[in-house]
Design a protein around this nucleic acid. Structure first.
Lengths: 363, 363
DNA sequence: CTGTTAGCGCCTTCAA
DNA sequence: TTGAAGGCGCTAACAG
């Protein structure tokens, strides 16, 4: 038993399909009130549901917004996804989800799939990388996106303009001042912190990570401090954990080059992890070795993930309005190519207990 | 400049559209190797991308899986979403996302929208409620789902069978033994805990919450204990926080009916929050009043949310294989109605520091 | 093995 | 205002 069609409804109402179409869907003006009523009754007596595929085919537009993330279970992305979802609802469109683990090849495929479905717009969250191994992938992704735009699609990007995009038309980017915010964070930390700094970063070439590292170093320089060592690792909790383990040795090495042991009152190490989840991983690693935050080391993250808000010690970080970012990343429906623009959001350095001076044990 | 069509490709290759279709899309067997080559070259010289809408229309199937969650930013749902996404990829379909905040009316609308798009299957996560105010909404949701099934759709449900579903055909449910697991948790806690028990639950009528409450009470009874008081509140962190504040009064009331104050060695209150996020909220509330876990009260949650794994004190909870649940919830593609079945998953009581006997301060 | 002929369900000119 | 006709892009039956 297949779903009933517009034609069936029309027949039951004793009108032509065209008329039925006019009353049931947003046409210019509803036909004669009596007719309209008849059609409507017929429609829901049959449980009629318009076939969006057919509508889409006829109108060549789908009411779909494609969203590309690395991993929907990552709280960073799921927060953005919520924003995208909100914006989609306002445009009454639905969102199509693709997860790519950050692989440019998968992202390209996702764009193609969205294009195939004639998505009205595509939102790409999650930073791309400049690694040479990704060069070709990036180029192909850029090409695919360009083609999508040329065919009338709009794309919204979180963070950076798409690497290698040819035209600006159709691109809409939400700029996140990662570098500046990281610099601000560094300066604030430098003001209250006497020890050395070290950065736990994602893989080299990951744009977001690189920006935050660069900014942090700049902030240190602004404060007259030497650049921090940088540990490159995975951009997730596991990466943070591994880096944390490495740092453990460095912190607790008795008389080690950094001098500060768990029992020393020496200046502690101050760790900047380029995102919250990594910071949490690092914290867990330190803790597993008996080290305590902020007693034995200070640590700060980036993003201010909501689910981590109650984490103890409260994590110093940079608050990013993730949901708003998601909302803003959705290109405005029906706007001409000229609407492609760059909007900026702003974050906020948020110092909490994890970078407080070592003192009493945490409450 | 519109996207190029199959017809254009065919023309460029000097063959008929049908032939082009055969080579470019999954037909029985690829036509003549030379022809095939020509077509393929023509296709990507034009940057041809098949129009999924048209394909769907012609084949009446869309390669879409609809996913309905309360809130994609909630880690419980995003974990499930990841599983759904994985399964979808295996069936090479894409997932369409709808968020409903648990409103039956929105869920109904989402089902209708999915049906309109001819989604091959729909997955509903998030418990429905039996509140009388939702009665009509539930009925309409059930009706919409039934219609969808009758038209050949498959639906996967997480947790419970859909309230009021008429036929079993097409329904596929992943059963989560909330009640049994909660009972097991209660028994384990009862074995090591001497104080009173109290339950922080979601709104009355929310199936998942009710099941967990019922199970916990049963477990207490099994252990020969009286039923716990139940506080009904929101099913999220805020709800947990509010309930936590209420309990604070109860815990710290000097000589209050429960007798145990922060400084007393008396049996502590043991709080069971029906999900992790609520447990975290409650913990934050207690902490805000200077109470410490597990010193002043024990607390346990449910779900074992991954992002909360590093929370301190480590939260006792019931581990649910959320991602697997998501994966299993996706109905098998192309299976007949008979494939509709109920699969079960199992969880695991996981006792951690938050319910340990009060002792030294947490490490 | 290839081409021709019909639709899939809807929207949109165009006449009436 | 309403109906009739054509097409959106593709696939699936048939022929050849």
């Amino acid at each position: 038993m297949a779903a009933s069609t517009l034609t069936e409804v029309a027949r039951l109402a004793g009108v032509s399909p065209a008329t039925a179409s006019r009353v049931l869907n947003g046409s210019a003006r509803t036909p004669g009130p009596d007719i309209a009523e008849r059609v409507r009754k017929a429609a829901d007596s049959l449980g009629y549901i318009p076939n969006a595929q057919a509508q889409g085919l006829a109108k060549s537009s789908s009411g779909l917004i494609g969203l590309i993330v690395h991993d929907i279970a990552d709280p960073y992305f799921s927060a953005i996804a919520r924003g995208v979802q909100t914006a989609a609802r306002h445009q009454n469109k639905m969102v199509l989800l693709a997860t790519t683990a950050g692989s440019p090849a998968d992202e390209r495929a996702a764009v193609a799939a969205f294009a195939a479905r004639r998505a009205d717009s595509i939102v790409i969250a999650g930073s791309r990388s400049t690694r040479t191994s990704d060069r070709q992938g990036n180029a192909e992704l850029a090409a695919e996106l360009d083609r999508y735009c040329r065919n009338g699609g709009r794309v919204g990007v979180v963070g950076h303009a798409v690497v290698g995009a040819e035209s600006d038309e159709g691109y809409h980017v939400v700029e996140v001042p990662n570098e500046d915010l990281a610099a601000a964070l560094a300066r604030e930390l430098a003001a209250s912190h006497a020890g050395e700094f070290v950065i736990i970063a994602g893989p080299e070439g990951l744009l977001t990570s690189d920006d935050r590292v660069r900014g942090f170093q700049r902030g240190l320089a602004d404060a007259g401090l030497p650049p921090a060592d940088v540990l490159h690792t995975g951009f997730d909790r596991t990466g943070g954990y591994e880096a944390g383990l490495e740092l453990t040795a460095r912190i607790s090495a008795p008389g080690g080059s950094r001098g500060a042991g768990p029992d020393a009152g020496y200046p502690r190490l101050c760790i900047f992890a380029v995102n919250d989840v990594m910071a949490i991983g690092a914290t867990a690693a330190l803790r597993s070795k008996g080290l305590r935050i902020p007693r034995d080391a200070a640590i700060a993250g980036f993003d201010d993930i909501e689910t981590l808000r109650d984490f103890r010690p409260a994590l110093s970080t940079v608050r990013l309005p993730l949901e708003e970012i998601g909302r803003l990343a959705v290109p405005v429906a029906g706007s001409g190519p000229t609407a492609a623009a760059t909007v900026g959001v702003t974050g906020e350095v948020t110092l909490r207990r994890s970078t407080e001076p070592a003192g009493e044990p945490a409450t």
